[in-house]
Design a binder for these strands. Structure first.
Lengths: 235, 235
DNA sequence: CGACGCTTTGACACAACTCAACAACCGTGG
DNA sequence: CCACGGTTGTTGAGTTGTGTCAAAGCGTCG
C-alpha cells in the first residue's frame, strides 16, 4: 500500500508526542480514503442526520451556523490536519454546517476505527484527544474574544491564533502566511460587520502591527499584538 | 457499598439510553468519591497544571476565563449532572477556571476509569460521549448567541437553554425553575453589561415573555421566546 | 441598625452598524 | 482583445444598540 506517512495531521500530532513508525502507519491508513471537493461546496449541512467525520488534508474550510435573520456565525476555519464533525457523531443531527472555501482534499473517517485505535495504540489515541481538546479550547477562546474583547483586540487575537495553528502544520513562518479568507468571512467569525472589520484592519496596518493584503498576512510586531490581544497559546 | 443509584448524571444519561442495573452501578461507583465545596470557592484555576475532572452533584457552578483588563467571560454554568474539566486533562494546563456559586457537592473523577468504561461498558461510554458532545454543542451555540444575536434574543436563548438543561435532570418544570444567578453573572456570560442586561430583563418581563425574580425564573410565553431567540434544542 | 450586595433607573458617550457609493480586481464570454 | 458582471475591498456620513457613570432603592444578614 502506497500510503504517504507524512500528513498535516501527523505533523500536528508530532508536536504532542513523537509518533513511532507503526503509529504513523495507522494514522496514514486512517486517512487513506481521500476525496476532492470543489471550492464553495457545502460538505455537511446543519441539522443533517447521520453525518460523517472528516480530516482536512489540504485547503481551507469553514464551520458555521446560520441564524434565523440571515446572519452567519463562523465557528472556525479548519485548515489541513484539522478534524471536522467528530463531535456530532453522537448527536442525532449535525450541530453546524461545514463547507470548503478553496478546492480541498478531505479524508472521511471511520469513526468506529477511532475507538479501536484508543485500545490498540493508546499513545496515538491520546494524541488525537489532545488535538481535539485543543480545538475545543480554541472555540472557548473564540467565545471569550467575541464576548469580551474590543474589535481590534479580537482581530489581533484571531490572526495570532491562526498563525500558530498554521505553524503547527508547517503552513506559516514566524511572521507570514497565506490566507484565502475574505473580510466578509473574517467579519462573520469575529461577530463584526465587514465594514467595521475593514477599518480595524486598516488600524492594524497603520499601527504597523499586521498587514493583510493579496491573500497574505504579515505580522510586523508580534509583541504588541500579543499584548493588544491578550493572546497566549494553548498547550 | 451504599452507593445511591440515582444521580443527576444518571437521569441525564437515561435520556440518551436507558441504562441497565449494572451500568447504573458502575456510574454510581464512578461518582462515589464526593466532596463538599463552599459557595464562592474556586475549584480550578486557569492555567493550573495537573487538574482533575469533576461531576457536579448538587449546586451551581461557573466556568470562566478572565481577560487582561479585568473582564470575565463566563463559558457556562454547570448544574448537577454536568462534567467539568474533562477537556483539559490532556492539555498541560486548564483552559479555564471553575468555581461554585452555591454550596455544592462534587465528585472527583478518575479519568483513567473513564477509558476502562469505554471498553467494558460501551453503551455507558457512548452515553458519556453524548453528554460531552452536547455540552460542546452548547458552547458553540453560546458563541453564536454572543456573536450574532441581539441582547434580548441572547437573554431569551440563554434561559431557554438553561430551562431545558435543568429539565433533563429534573430541576425545572415546563415553565419554572430556581436560579441563583445574579444579573452580573448572567451579563458576564452573555457579553453584556449588567446595566443593559437589567433593561433587557425588564423588556422580557414587560413583553410578558419571561420573569426573573427572587431567584426564580418563570416562562410565560415559550412560543414567542423560541421565535425571538431562534432556540431549538440539541439532540 | 448599619453595611453590604444586588437591582433599578436616568443621562450621556461611544463603539460598532447600516446605508451608500465607488474602486479594484477577477474570470468569462463575446 | 476588450467589455462585462460579480466579488471584494475601501471610505464617508449618519444612526443606534450597548456601555459607562452615577445615584438611589431594597433586601438581608451580622
Amino acid at each position: 500500500m502506497d500510503t504517504n506517512f507524512d500528513s498535516a495531521l501527523a505533523r500536528k500530532l508530532n508536536a504532542f508526542v513523537e509518533l513511532s513508525k507503526d503509529e504513523l502507519g495507522v494514522l496514514a491508513d486512517l486517512q487513506s480514503k481521500r476525496c476532492e471537493i470543489k471550492r464553495g461546496h457545502e460538505v455537511t449541512h446543519e441539522g443533517q442526520a447521520g453525518q460523517k467525520a472528516y480530516i482536512l488534508q489540504s485547503g481551507w474550510g469553514c464551520s458555521f451556523k446560520m441564524v434565523p435573520n440571515g446572519g452567519r456565525q463562523i465557528i472556525r476555519f479548519p485548515i489541513p490536519g484539522d478534524c471536522v464533525g467528530l463531535r456530532s457523531i453522537l448527536l442525532r443531527t449535525s450541530d453546524h454546517a461545514f463547507s470548503v472555501l478553496t478546492d480541498s482534499v478531505v479524508s472521511t473517517l471511520e469513526t468506529v476505527r477511532i475507538l479501536d485505535i484508543f485500545n490498540e495504540f493508546p499513545r496515538l489515541g491520546a494524541a488525537f484527544l489532545w488535538a481535539i481538546s485543543r480545538d475545543e479550547a480554541m472555540v472557548v477562546e473564540h467565545l471569550v474574544s467575541v464576548g469580551k474583547r474590543s474589535a481590534i483586540a479580537r482581530a489581533a487575537h484571531f490572526f495570532m491564533e491562526l498563525a500558530e495553528r498554521l505553524r503547527l502544520v508547517g503552513l506559516a513562518t514566524e511572521t507570514q502566511f497565506e490566507c484565502p479568507l475574505t473580510q466578509y468571512l473574517i467579519a462573520d467569525a469575529l461577530g463584526l460587520s465587514p465594514v467595521h472589520l475593514n477599518r480595524v484592519l486598516r488600524q492594524l496596518r497603520e499601527r504597523r502591527l499586521l498587514t493583510v493584503a493579496c491573500g497574505n498576512v504579515t505580522i510586523h510586531d508580534i509583541g504588541s499584538l500579543r499584548e493588544l490581544s491578550g493572546y497566549h497559546s494553548v498547550d
